[in-house]
Nucleic acid binder design. Structure first.
Lengths: 253, 253
DNA sequence: GAGTGGTCTAGACCACCGC
DNA sequence: CGGTGGTCTAGACCACTCT
C-alpha cells in the first residue's frame, strides 16, 4: 500500500495522445490549418509513427481532422448538418431533393437487395445512381433500386443508360401514390465505387441510410445512400440542425 | 506498352484479405462460431499480424465479427434493428420507451451542451443517465441534460442522486407540453464511461443520436445517446425495420 | 523529385479471460 | 497458468500530389 496509486489503469499511449492533440486543436489551431507531418509529430511526442497514426485515425473518425495522401493533415471544419428526413413521404427525385441524377441501368438484384424489396431475384430492377453535393463538396452517393414492375411504362425508353435514363425512371416514380416509407441508418465502409465518388479511400467510414418506399401494397423502391461519416451529421425532424461543437473553434483566413 | 496491364491498381493486401474473409464468413462459418486466433490466421494467409488485424478491424466495423480480448474472434449475428424514431413527439421517460433510468445529478453544462441548449454556462442543469438493453445486451447509453428552469418544481427533491432522482426528473418533464423535437445522427467514438456501459473498449465506434426537445419556446431538454455502431442498425419511420443481410447466414447450434 | 500519407513487416510486451 | 486480442516499436517501401 503506501502510495496512493491513482493510476491503476495505464491509459494507452494513443488514447492519451488523442486527448492531447484534441486539446491542441481547440486552442492552437484554426480550421483549415495544416498540421506537421506524421514523422515530425511522432518524433515530437516520442512515439512510433504507427502509434501516432492510431490517434490521428480516431480524430479523423470524429471529424476533427482531414488527411489526404500526398498533401497532408488539416484541421477539419465542424461537421455539416445534412437534412435527410425533411419532407416526410416524398419520392426520390421530387421537386429538387438535393440529389443529382448521374446514371441508370437495368440489372438483376443481389440477394440482399431482393430480400429488402421482397421480390424474387428473377425480378429485374432499374438501378439509378445519384450523388449529393453540399457546400461544394460531395457528401453522399446513392444507389436506387426500382423494380421494373413499379414503372411499367418505362419499357419504351430509348436511352440505355446515362443521366437522361435516370431522370426518366425518377419521373415515372412520381406518378405512383406513395403510401409510406421506412428508414434505417447504420455504419459501413465505403465500397470502391462509392469511395471514388466521395473522394475518399475505399473502406472509409460511411453512414448508410437505407430507405424503403411503399406503393401499391409493395416495396416500390429501395434507396441505399452512403454518406461520408467524417464530414456529415445527418439531421432529421422539423427544424434545421443541431449545432454541437467540440469546443472553441476559429475560422482560418 | 505491349502487355495488357489490367491490374493498374494493385489492391492493398488487407482489402483483398477482407474480401476473402468476408466470403469465407458467408460460406464456411455460422453465427457465433469462433475463428482461429490472429497469429494462426496471419500465418495461414502469409501476412503480418498487423495486416490481418486491419482486415479484421474493418469486418468488425461492418458488424460481421466480434472480438473480445482474452476470448477470441467470433462471427457476429446480423445487426439488430433498434427503433429510434417511433413515437414522434414524446418526452424521454414517457410510457416505457425502452430506456432504463440509471442515475441523475445536478451539473454545470459544458460549452458544447450550453450551446445546444441555447443557454448560458451559468445556467445549471440536471443530468440523467439512462441505458438501453435489447435482446439481452446493452446497445446504448444516454446522457440527458435538463435545464433547471424546465423543471422548477424539482428543487424540493430529497435524493441527491440515484435512479429515484432520475425518475423524478423524467416525471417532471412529462408535465410540460412538448412543442417539437430535432434529431441528428453522427459517428463518434465511445468515451471511457460510455464504453464501459456498452461493454466495449474506449474509442469503439458509436452512433451518436442528439435530440433536442422544445417546450415553452425554449430547448427544454437535450439527449445525447450513443449506440454501439457494430451491433445496431438505427431504424426510423412508421413500420418495423428494414432487413438487409450481407449474404447467406445460418444460426449456430 | 521532394514530401506527404498509406501499406506492410517481424518482432515484443501487456491486459484480460478461462481453466 | 496458457491463450487470446490490444498496444507498441523501428524500420521499409509504395502511391499520390504538388512544384
Amino acid at each position: 500500500m503506501g502510495t496512493t496509486q491513482l493510476e491503476t489503469v495505464p491509459e494507452p499511449k494513443y488514447w492519451h495522445l488523442k486527448t492531447v492533440l484534441s486539446e491542441a486543436l481547440d486552442s492552437e489551431f484554426t480550421v483549415g490549418e495544416i498540421l506537421p507531418n506524421e514523422r515530425d509529430l511522432a518524433a515530437r511526442f516520442g512515439v512510433a509513427r504507427a502509434t501516432l497514426r492510431q490517434a490521428l485515425e480516431q480524430l479523423e473518425l470524429e471529424g476533427r481532422l482531414q488527411r489526404r495522401r500526398g498533401v497532408g493533415t488539416t484541421v477539419a471544419p465542424p461537421r455539416m448538418g445534412v437534412a435527410v428526413g425533411t419532407a416526410r413521404h416524398a419520392w426520390p427525385g421530387a421537386a429538387d431533393d438535393a440529389w443529382q441524377p448521374v446514371d441508370s441501368a437495368p440489372a438483376v438484384p443481389s440477394a440482399a437487395v431482393a430480400a429488402a424489396l421482397e421480390t424474387g431475384r428473377d425480378e429485374p430492377v432499374h438501378t439509378v445512381r445519384r450523388s449529393r453535393v453540399s457546400h461544394g463538396q460531395p457528401v453522399a452517393a446513392e444507389l436506387l433500386y426500382v423494380p421494373a414492375l413499379s414503372v411499367p411504362d418505362l419499357s419504351a425508353i430509348d436511352a440505355p443508360s446515362g443521366a437522361a435514363r435516370a431522370r426518366a425512371v425518377l419521373r415515372e416514380l412520381q406518378r405512383l401514390e406513395l403510401e409510406g416509407q421506412d428508414r434505417a441508418v447504420e455504419l459501413g465502409s465505403a465500397r470502391a465505387d462509392d469511395a471514388k465518388e466521395l473522394d475518399r479511400l475505399p473502406g472509409a467510414p460511411v453512414l448508410v441510410v437505407t430507405t424503403r418506399f411503399f406503393a401499391g401494397g409493395r416495396t416500390a423502391a429501395l434507396s441505399v445512400a452512403t454518406y461520408r461519416a467524417d464530414t456529415c451529421r445527418l439531421t432529421f425532424g422539423d427544424s434545421g440542425g443541431v449545432e454541437i461543437h467540440h469546443g472553441p473553434e476559429r475560422q482560418a483566413s
